[in-house]
Write a protein that binds this DNA or RNA. Structure first.
Length: 301
DNA sequence: AAGACGAAAGTGGTTGA
DNA sequence: TCAACAACTTTCGTCTT
């Protein structure tokens, strides 16, 4: 059982709304900036209006969420009671806050940097900051590079938000390799109990297609293919990037906009071999082989 | 010469005993 | 914890256009 470090009372009151744990006897705030896990993540179509937030949300992209509190040292306080007690309170608060807050300040400036390199949407940046904040509070950053945890938070956040960011993108911006990023983001997920759905190939279609300068018609075709691929269960266990790349390669040929495997491989960061394997598999199992051959002949002619 | 093809060997992640 | 496994990568020689 946790006890108040000030008066040893065990009558601690967890106030979720305020994000605090408060000692009922002496009023000491044991922990603030607790993360409220309850609403926010899941609520989409919910009928339950009571969970809705109104007004400006707290922001995690400032190190103290814009809500820093300090125990003052004005004469009034001292008059209220025991001098020593308030002095000890202030010292105690300074100790817990400085380490975490200094860390957060550093981390958030790194996050800003990555964010501007990757042009992150504000919601993604915000969520990354949230995840990082939780990680610090759980002491996950100790012994690990701060930048690595930031990069991990960014990757998780973009996955949660259905962004088309790949691990390669985050690695480039964060200056770490895939192995490290993989280790770190999995570590964070495990410790914070965050679950990620496998990425949806659909998320990559637009990004790849625009880099390949493919028409919207081809993109739509690719999306349709991916839909069929899913219906036939051809997607399970396969890399979403590979599926998107294969589908786009197919769609481009059928739409008379053929791109070389090399180019598709370049923009999708998947090898030509894998694109071949995927598109062959798709064209056979979806019964569009004849269609494809015809399109190929036409492309040559 | 460019592009497509596929075999062979290696890597990292997942799964199941 | 270990082995088996599928997907993917790297490399490379061959075929087609």
């Amino acid at each position: 059982m946790k006890r108040c470090p000030e008066c040893q009372s065990n009558r601690l009151n967890q106030n979720k709304e305020a994000g605090e744990i408060v000692c009922k006897d002496c009023g000491l705030v044991l922990e603030d900036k607790l993360v409220d896990f309850s609403p926010e993540w899941t609520e989409h179509e919910s009928e339950d209006q009571s969970k809705r937030r109104t007004g400006a949300p707290l922001t995690y992209t400032q190190h103290d969420q814009g809500l820093g509190t300090e125990i003052g040292n004005s004469a009034d306080f001292y008059r209220l009671g025991n001098k020593d007690k308030f002095y000890r309170l202030r010292r105690w608060q300074r100790r817990v806050s400085t380490a975490i807050e200094r860390n957060l300040q550093l981390a958030l400036s790194e996050l800003k940097r990555i964010s501007s390199v990757l042009h992150l949407a504000p919601a993604v940046e915000e969520e990354a900051a949230r995840i990082y904040t939780m990680a610090v509070q759980k002491g996950l950053v100790k012994g690990r590079g701060l930048e690595h945890i930031v990069a991990g938070a960014v990757y998780i956040s973009s996955r949660l938000n259905d962004s088309s960011l790949t691990m390669d993108d985050v690695c480039r911006a964060g200056g770490l390799d895939k192995k490290e990023l993989g280790k770190n983001y999995r570590f964070i997920m495990r410790k914070l109990d965050i679950k990620l759905m496998p990425a949806d190939p659909v998320n990559y279609v637009h990004k790849f297609a625009s880099k390949l300068d493919l028409s919207p018609v081809t993109q739509t075709k690719a999306l349709k293919l991916i839909d069929d691929i899913k219906k036939n269960g051809l997607n399970s266990g396969k890399s979403p990037k590979a599926i998107a790349a294969g589908a786009l390669y197919l769609a481009a040929i059928m739409n008379g906009e053929k791109r070389t495997q090399e180019k598709v491989a370049m923009v999708s960061n998947v090898t030509e071999v894998t694109i071949r394997n995927r598109y062959k598999e798709f064209s056979e199992k979806l019964g569009i082989k004849k269609h494809l051959n015809k399109a190929l002949k036409k492309a040559v002619a």
